[in-house]
Write a protein that binds this DNA or RNA. Structure first.
Lengths: 229, 229
DNA sequence: TGTTTATGAATGAAGG
DNA sequence: CCTTCATTCATAAACA
């Protein structure tokens, strides 16, 4: 029925055409919201598959649309709610007259998150974590520090400069022709090159080098800019 | 007009000031991508140092930026690949006319070998549990791919091949009281909790489930067909 | 029809 | 490495 009229200028793109961004139909949005209200926050892959499949009956839709929708919706509900709670809180501050006490037996609490509820947002951590650790075995960069940066040259945290090495071998001006496999040996020159005949040939299996290289089509020097371009 | 102030209008923050998050310049991205295509996936500490040093010539940048960039880029490229393979795989599943009959489809998805890439997919992890009932349903949507202004018809996502029956529980019509899947078990879920009396069925922010009738386009509970039961 | 708002999409940054 | 959150960008939609 709803499809016969379509008078609600649902705009175009429902038919998947256009190429612009996905524009959900009312039905799709209703369903997504319904799911969200049911508690669905971050659907799994399977869930997304199912949702997408069902929603497809109402118009073009892809898995990523569902994924993004939930991401955005959750994030925005949260931020909106944050503001609300703030306003709510402010109201209390400005209004020393609470409307009424919540009945204890009736649980319809408006759930006020209260921005500063102690252990709130864990993301706002200020942990005194001085990361900057290196893999003991491979001298690998481990989680960088998130804050407390020098704003200058704080990159030295990486290596203890125990062994000096060519500082700029990473971007050789001349095509050395060898694609390094860092990690192979700290002593080795852990730098990539702009070579064309660089086949990982993975000497070391652990070396995460050409494992899934499905997107590298070496054939031309990419680093001309490094060299001068 | 570019004489001395060769600052492209790359939005802001390229000058390092501001304190916001790193906003890579085009040059920086080009170089990073170039390195990536050359096979660099997880640069070592020294490599990061060098890369950072080089890229700093184009704008403010820190080691952690490079570190994160590689991590994100790698992960997202992989996701993209997964999406593609899934779309490819799904094509057969959805079409009543597959080029050939499927050998087995009960469980354990046959890792489709990527239509366009030779992805060896040795990373495993991405799926088949097949046995052991540990299945905690951990397979999540791995982020959709981001096609650069390119409209593609691929959707779907990682599979996980879990033939688990959770399929039906995804959309419970009636408030069973249990959250269909893992959703708010991450601890942080949603801060609120003034009373700690949170009902699992209803998330947190939106507690108006079912009755607010803001979604009445169809004359039937939108989830009954979702249930597909 | 130009401006504002809502929201899909992308990605840097972390946490675990 | 994988998952998730926060920000931001881009643009269709809503509005006056």
């Amino acid at each position: 029925m709803e499809g016969s009229g379509d008078h609600h200028h649902q705009t175009v793109n429902n038919g998947n055409i256009g190429g612009s961004r996905w524009n959900p139909t009312k039905e799709q949005i209703n369903m997504l919201e319904g799911l969200y209200r049911q508690g669905l926050r971050t659907p799994t892959a399977e869930q997304i598959q199912q949702i997408t499949a069902r929603l497809r009956a109402f118009g073009h839709i892809e898995g990523k649309n569902v994924f993004y929708w939930f991401q955005n919706h959750k994030a925005r509900q949260r931020q909106k709610q944050k503001q609300d709670s703030f306003a709510y809180f402010n109201r209390f501050l400005h209004h020393p007259t609470p409307p009424l006490i919540f009945p204890s037996y009736h649980n319809a609490i408006p759930k006020v998150p209260l921005p500063a509820a102690g252990a709130s947002t864990k993301r706002s951590k200020l942990i005194p974590e001085s990361n900057t650790s290196i893999d003991k075995n491979h001298q690998r960069y481990n989680k960088p520090m998130h804050h407390l940066r020098n704003k200058n040259d704080n990159d030295q945290f990486i290596s203890s400069s125990s062994h000096h090495q060519e500082t700029l071998e990473l971007f050789p001006i001349h095509p050395t022709g060898i694609l390094q496999s860092r990690t192979g040996n700290e002593s080795e020159n852990n730098m990539i090159s702009t070579s064309a005949n660089n086949t990982p040939t993975s000497s070391s299996e652990d070396n995460n080098y050409g494992s899934t290289d499905h997107d590298h089509d070496h054939g031309h020097p990419f680093f001309d800019f490094f060299c001068g371009n």
